[in-house]
């Protein structure tokens, strides 16, 4: 019983140390888990600026009016 109570007490205390896990996205603020950034690979060799430029250029390709000169 004493052990049980102590365990419950310790667990309850641990709850106080809980970090807020609802990760509300803040731009540029990477949250937590290990995952390589999309520019950290063979294609980009960590060149973040080049990657961002590429993705942006790629995004603009979706604008057909610019593509067909309309």
């Amino acid at each position: 019983m004493r052990f049980f109570l102590m365990a419950a007490f310790v667990l309850a205390l641990l709850g106080c140390g809980d970090r807020d896990k609802v990760a509300v996205y803040k731009p540029g603020d990477y949250q937590g888990k290990s995952d390589a950034a999309p520019w950290n690979n063979k294609t980009y060799n960590g060149d973040k600026a080049k990657w961002e430029g590429d993705v942006r250029a790629r995004g603009r390709l979706q604008d057909e009016s610019r593509r067909i000169g309309g």
Binding site: P38, Y44, D54, V55, Q62
Partner: peptide, 15 residues
């Protein structure tokens, strides 16, 4: 993982 290739989601790109 298209983003890591400098590409965007296939659904949007091929629409």
């Amino acid at each position: 993982n298209r983003l890591a290739e400098g590409k965007l989601p296939i659904c949007a790109e091929m629409c």
